[in-house]
């Protein structure tokens, strides 16, 4: 499914500033199109001081791609960053094992709501697996904060909880969670949901 000439490129995944040529390749359009959009103001950026070279910051490029429904998978690379938030170290360990053995995910963990906030800033996860009951703040608050920042509006959230309470589930969905799973969960079901939410091709080793 993926284009062979654009294998996951670490430099793109970490790149902060793009040239119009790079942007054209990421977006799979011609450089002229990027330049036209830049000049028309539809793609915000800056010129290098003392020259005419156009430069596009990563956030602006992503916004532009989203606005025009251009898949960002090239830019992000094929691996998806997943942040797992749970106060139980064993559950964290289990999830890390499950997700890393899958091969499509880069996993980081946090055990409090506060850690989750910090990690979100630095790790910019595509998806967060969030336990509802955390030592400091509850999952629905983490969810709310995440959604209040437009930068993370595309970050997917799967909530997991041992206590299944209608009110909790409702408050989580209202706070912006994409899915709810009850503990203990079926691993296959979890990875399926993740695949759907991240719009990944269904190519893991189980398929």
């Amino acid at each position: 499914m993926s284009d062979k000439s654009h294998t996951p490129d670490e430099s793109w995944a970490d790149k902060k500033i793009f040239t119009t040529g790079e942007a054209a390749r990421v977006c799979k359009v011609s450089q002229q199109t990027i330049i036209r959009c830049f000049d028309a103001g539809r793609l915000a950026g800056f010129r290098v001081p003392g020259s005419k070279f156009r430069r596009i910051p990563r956030e602006e490029l992503i916004r532009f791609m989203h606005d025009n429904s251009i898949p960002t998978d090239l830019l992000e690379g094929q691996t998806r960053r997943v942040l797992v938030v749970d106060d139980d170290p064993q559950v964290l360990e289990l999830l890390v094992e499950i997700l890393s053995s899958d091969g499509r995910f880069v996993v980081q963990t946090a055990s409090t709501g506060y850690d989750a906030g910090i990690m979100t800033e630095s790790f910019r996860p595509h998806l967060m697996i969030l336990d509802f009951l955390l030592p400091d703040i509850n999952g629905n608050l983490v969810c709310q904060r995440l959604r209040s920042n437009p930068q993370y509006k595309n970050t997917r959230v799967i909530c997991i909880s041992g206590v299944v309470d209608e009110q909790q589930v409702k408050s989580l969905i209202e706070a912006g969670a994409d899915h709810f799973l009850k503990k203990p969960f079926n691993i296959r079901q979890l990875t399926q949901i993740m695949t759907q939410l991240l719009e990944l091709p269904d190519n893991n080793h189980d398929a």
């Binding site: 559950v91 289990l94 041992g162 503990k183 969960f185």
Partner: peptide, 17 residues
């Protein structure tokens, strides 16, 4: 539910793996 489901998650999870 809270105290028992976490260990159960671990038991069930590793068993599934």
């Amino acid at each position: 539910a809270h105290e028992m489901n976490n260990p159960l998650t671990v038991i069930s999870g590793y068993a599934q793996l």
